[in-house]
Design a binder for these strands. Sequence first.
DNA 1: GAAGTCATGTAATTGGTTACATGATTGA
DNA 2: TCAATCATGTAACCAATTACATGACTTC
Lengths: 178, 178
Amino acid sequence: MANKKKINYVILGLLNHEPLTGYEIKKRIDLSLKFFWSGSFGSIYPALDALEKDGCVEKEEENSGRGRIIYSITDKGRALLREWLMKPAEKDELRYETLLKLFFGGELGREGILVHIQKFEEKIRKELQVLEKYAVNLEKVQDEEEHKYYLLTVRFGIETYRAYLGWCEEAKAVLKQG
Amino acid sequence: MANKKKINYVILGLLNHEPLTGYEIKKRIDLSLKFFWSGSFGSIYPALDALEKDGCVEKEEENSGRGRIIYSITDKGRALLREWLMKPAEKDELRYETLLKLFFGGELGREGILVHIQKFEEKIRKELQVLEKYAVNLEKVQDEEEHKYYLLTVRFGIETYRAYLGWCEEAKAVLKQG
DNA sequence: GAAGTCATGTAATTGGTTACATGATTGA
DNA sequence: TCAATCATGTAACCAATTACATGACTTC
């Protein structure tokens, strides 16, 4: 039953674009979905197995070389993917330890909190640069419909991160004098 | 061993402000931490039990009325909280099913994606209103140091949500003609 | 007196992650 | 030749959530 675990849909969604090995799926997640999703080998390989037994994906084992196993989506898999895509999103969740520490900042004091904010700012600044590079590259290939969706998720990340950086300035100002 | 589960620090952080029952802790999480954290009864009550056995919190059982159990933080608990607060944040995580569906939007088509974006926009608009009310109230009581931290987390939410709404307009424009 | 809230707690399940084991291929 | 990467897989663990069970108090 490939119905509740989100990793199944991530896999189906990626395979719907092109056949991939488990290893490549992991790379795609870490590269393109990183901003809003994650997944480990420990969930990907068992999920591929289950999806195959369910007839949602097909595998082709290379008998030369490394013996990679290349998975592709089946019609049944595509139907399952579409079914899920039509349902409303169940959960959009943000879980920021930085904000948790800030909320309890009274016990830590201003200097301590400033350290957290600075670290946060640095991390965001770096990730923003990466996203901006993605955007530049995706803007060049907007003739392909799928790239429009990719770019929109990247634009989401960019605008969110810019807002974070604006907030960082505000927070630092408050804590340095306020 | 109250060292890895984040719920322990959430509890300690809340109790550091005032003694609370498990039920009240849940309410505080759903009210004040909602934007960036969550927690269920199924994690709160066992955690309180473990923290008490560890000497990090103390309980006082009301023998009248409902028999509420009011927990307060101990010096040991406060020390543990401070220790955690000083460590760098390990994980700031965003997990948006809406973005996942958008990323795979090719299979769903523009109208379907627009529905997701509209639902997302509505939800954010509502939550933004709530946050803005919190901000107004918190601005009135900025003489208290702790309220500065509360307000900063609320401001984070407000600025993030405003960025989301800006992105929604952009996304709708792209999908309606692009 | 009924509905809603306050209040505590547990058992089963879940949707993962981490760490490990293994080995082939590639490129400097 | 040696490190990095490609590649698959599993076992142990984990931090939670969900669903349930129970009951008292409050308010209309």
